[in-house]
Design a binder for these strands. Structure first.
Lengths: 356, 356
DNA sequence: CTGTTAGCGCTTTCAT
DNA sequence: ATGAAAGCGCTAACAG
């Protein structure tokens, strides 16, 4: 096992120009700067925060000292004093799911240049853990929280929101300190199935999400409505419950085959399970979209690079992250929160085709 | 549940600083608890930290007060006092890349139950920004830093490590306060190409990573060595530079076709660009692995669900995150840092086959 | 314009 | 065993 390249270690020369000429290795404090510049701490603070006018000579001296000492204010001290940590908490459910990561990217961009940093914790789709993580964030005195999905009740969210403002996705909330962004899952699913119906499909299987998940329930409703509207009888045999993961999509697909269902199209409640379904199809030698059409839901970044590229319902994940962040910052700073996220939309790629 | 109303969004205006004037008495302090329990603040602190023995009756009273008031110590105050923030900083390069996310999951698990939280920032593959982010983390008084990849020089990392311990991936470092985990990219690439050669391939194209990236250079070296070892002449025409993203893999593949190269296999420097290459192949109607074999590098979580599942070199991303975290915590707490990361290994799936 | 003076909420000697 | 007091590093009145 080769892990460390130990050779060449001696080549790395450690020199510490900054620390070398410093009397004390510890990071310098505002007090040190004040002393060095021959002014009072308040003056330094004022310059740092632009709180008041300061004479130019003193300002120069302070700036010089700051630069020389490589000083940066201790944010914990600042936070303690100001009652603002300049940190927001993000609760995701799965740190390594492309679904959350895309939203996180929006959050990251939304935070850019604001001076806020974020601490990200994971609730792992568990209401208990979620609440625990939020308590942890609260103890860390985050200035606000962004909650992405989750299993906590709205009431619990509302309760926490009395301590710090919370913006959540997947919830319809709107109070003084709690705001929710909810996508119209029913509509999205309707769009997907409607697309299939328009292509002439009538036997459309559905790989659902977990039945205790609100989004999943809504998507099922959209599937049902599209069918009903087209006068197609709902066949419960065509509906298989999955859990949003690849493996479950594959399993669901196999179940469909094992029970000898007839269908020409499959709607998966999310892209990940569509990937799994795709693999099951591949294994059976069934071509997509020639033999069977497939539609997903989410439009994960990877979905334009599946083979073939996946037709799906696009969730504006990035925008959701960005707008949620923007809104939270607005609430924190007492501004007005405007902002709406774009609606779900059908992205037709190459996994669907007219039934022959 | 409150119904979400899209219309009228713009009507709702929040103007008061929510954070400033919370409805109910702000979060309770240790002082409040002390008063409530009729003891001194020090006693409460002692119970909280198990710093000293406290009589049972007082302990009960304090515990009761804590529970009743729903008290949790202010971590910023604690941190300021103790000089430990119980926070570590993580520098990734791209918050929404499956590559980093998998490592992040390891970090997350490594932190579990330690009381540490992490603030994650992104360097966006830019040395300047990376250094900026690290300065930001330092100002926030993180107790240590995990640096994932990046473009900063080792020397810069070493300099920063005088302020706080740093463990980094992709670097060969080992000082008192800096530790690096480096994978043997050359060997990994060798494994991939060797596998192809064993299957009878002799014309093997290579979609490389960016030429200024150390990992990419090493992988190219592995490709070269495997070829040389098999007595296959290196054909520069068969090497196309990519940038590790899907699109570049697709472009690279197309370049190969446009210049009419002959080859039976492709080795992509990472899974993402393999995905892109796969799509280009699909578009041309070229079958994988029947017509052309394809090997990636990384073994991202999605690679077992591509069509067909991707043969690749597995990087122990999760373990790297977990071990890096563990090591950092060890350094922080002055323990010894042991722990080695599993080696790269070839994962043969379904995109490679014997040349006919 | 600038220095002095109080703390923010917690831990930690130092007495008792 | 427990309380009083002194800060951690910074900001924000409050005087000048």
């Amino acid at each position: 096992m080769v892990t460390f390249r130990r050779k060449g270690f001696h080549n790395i020369i450690i020199k510490e120009p900054v620390l070398a000429d410093l009397p004390h290795p510890g990071p310098s404090t505002l007090m040190d700067v004040a002393r060095e510049a021959g002014v009072s701490p308040s003056t330094v603070s004022r310059i740092l925060n632009g709180t008041a006018r300061v004479s130019d000579d003193k300002r120069q001296a302070v700036l010089a000292a700051i630069a020389e000492m490589n000083f940066a204010p201790n944010q914990m001290a600042q936070g303690l004093k100001k009652g603002r940590s300049m940190t927001i908490g993000i609760v995701v459910q799965d740190i390594s799911s492309p679904f959350f990561d895309e939203t996180l990217r929006g959050v990251d961009d939304g935070l850019k240049g604001t001076g806020y940093a974020s601490v990200i914790v994971s609730g792992h789709w568990n209401a208990e853990e979620e609440a625990d993580r939020i308590r942890l964030l609260l103890a860390r005195k985050v200035d606000g929280i962004i909650l992405l999905s989750g299993r906590m009740s709205d009431q619990t969210v509302l309760n926490f929101s009395t301590q710090r403002p919370i913006v959540s996705t997947g919830r319809a909330l709107r109070t003084r300190s709690a705001l929710g962004f909810k996508m119209d899952n029913e509509h999205g699913a309707y769009l997907a199935v409607h697309h299939l119906i328009e292509l002439g499909h009538r036997r459309i299987a559905f790989i659902s999400g977990p039945s205790n998940n609100i989004d999943a329930i809504e998507r099922l409703a959209g599937y049902t409505r599209a069918l009903a509207e087209a006068g197609i009888a709902l066949d419960p045999q065509l509906i298989v419950e999955g859990n949003y993961h690849e493996a479950s999509g594959m399993l669901a697909m196999n179940r469909l085959f094992d029970t000898h269902q007839q269908f020409t199209a499959v709607f998966a409640a999310n892209d990940l399970s569509a990937y799994g379904a795709r693999l099951a199809l591949y294994r059976k030698g069934i071509r997509v979209p020639d033999d069977i059409s497939l539609v997903g839901f989410d439009d994960l970044p990877g979905s334009s690079y599946t083979t073939p590229p996946l037709t799906t319902i696009r969730q504006p994940l990035y925008d959701i992250g960005r707008i949620a962040t923007h809104s939270l910052l607005c609430i924190i700073n007492g501004g007005e929160t405007r902002g709406e996220v774009p609606p779900l939309e059908l992205i037709v790629r190459e996994t669907t085709r007219r039934v022959r």
